[in-house]
Simulated scan of single mutants.
Amino acid sequence: MVQQLSPSTIEDELLYPDSDGKPLADNTTQLRLIFTIKGGLDALFKDRDDVFVAADLLWYPVKLTQQEVIEQEEPQRQAPDVMVVLGRPKGDRGSYMQWKEDNTAPQVAFEILSPGNKKKDMETKFTFYQQHGIEEYYLYNPKKNRLQGWLRKGKNLKEITQMEGWKSPLLGVKFTTGEGDLVLFHPNGERFVDFVEVVEQRDRERVEKERERLEKERERVEKERERVEKERERLEKERQQQRAILAEDERDRQQSRADRAESDLQKMRERLLQLGIDPDSLS
């Protein structure tokens, strides 16, 4: 069944396309950092349904007026490398049309500088973010390992003078470039990692759990061996005690037989004497 599009939907697709035709990233470094930041923020807000995180999503802050449509004006738009919108639900979107989002502007934007970014383009981005409500803006230059940040003061974004160790007021994450790369840390101190690092960490944890399991099994076997050894010693001691008792019983029986033989011999001597026979003369 072919889906019927309403005139307003067709209008939105024509006026506010989901793509600007530009690639997500110009190089692997930029792509890695974008995915790491986006993934880390997704993990940070995984339990909150009112936080929307996106990467390279076109943001249209203002709906075109009818006159602007007639005059074929281009809508204002930018696609931050990563943006965070507090107060909006998670979910898939082709673009972020602010008038359809309770007029809530993204509060935090991240940009990873690439060779394809011109100075004029970055100035345009800055002006756009300042004009349309971004409260925190972070720009990282991988080539120079330089992180810059701006915080909203009234209507303007003011540069943060000391970015090393900076903690985002809205996100609670910390920044450092001390390792020669941009690294972000969760409020609990855990660092943002890319998917490969997540898998490696999971594998390390799996190996560590297996090692702990084997160690516990070794301890269990050792304890069982000690128990068996103690049981063997106990049984050996019991056998020795039983042998000693049997030996003592045997000695008692032999002594009893000897006593009876001696008694019988004495009675025989006495009987012979009664008959007038000297027992010694019979030997």
Rank of each mutant, 00 (worst) to 15 (best):
A54S: 11
P106N: 06
D249G: 02
Q72N: 15
E123S: 12
L64T: 02
L171N: 00
R227W: 04
V183S: 08
E159Q: 15
Y96D: 02
E197I: 02
D81R: 00
V108N: 01
D278T: 08
Y129R: 02
V183H: 06
G39W: 03
R225H: 04
L58Y: 01
P187C: 05
R206F: 07
K153N: 15
R251T: 04
H186M: 10
R260M: 14
D42A: 04
E200R: 13
K120T: 09
Q78E: 04
I134K: 00
L275T: 02
K223E: 05
T104C: 13
S263I: 04
D252K: 13
E159N: 06
E164A: 11
E179T: 12
P7C: 10
T9G: 01
Q241H: 13
E101H: 08
V199A: 11
G178R: 11
T65E: 09
M97D: 08
Y96G: 00
S263R: 14
K118Y: 03
E71V: 10
K125P: 00
W59M: 03
W59F: 09
E11R: 15
A54F: 00
K46N: 11
D92N: 13
G39F: 04
M83Y: 02
E212G: 00
V207Q: 14
D249M: 11
S95V: 03
D56Q: 10
F126C: 10
R271H: 13
K153G: 09
D278C: 09
R234W: 04
A244D: 14
E11I: 07
K144M: 14
I134C: 04
K125I: 01
D49I: 12
D121L: 03
D92F: 15
T176L: 05
P115A: 08
T124P: 00
L246K: 09
K267S: 13
Y140H: 07
P106K: 02
T161C: 06
D181Y: 13
R48P: 03
E11Y: 13
L15V: 10
F175T: 00
W59I: 02
R234S: 04
E270R: 14
I70T: 12
E231D: 13
S6D: 09
N188V: 05
I112P: 00
N145E: 09
W99V: 10
Q76R: 13
D56S: 06
H186G: 02
L282Q: 06
D56K: 07
E135S: 13
T65G: 13
V221F: 02
L246T: 05
R253I: 08
L41G: 01
Q131H: 09
E136W: 04
W59N: 01
P279A: 08
L157S: 05
Y138R: 03
Y140P: 02
N103E: 11
E229M: 06
K46V: 12
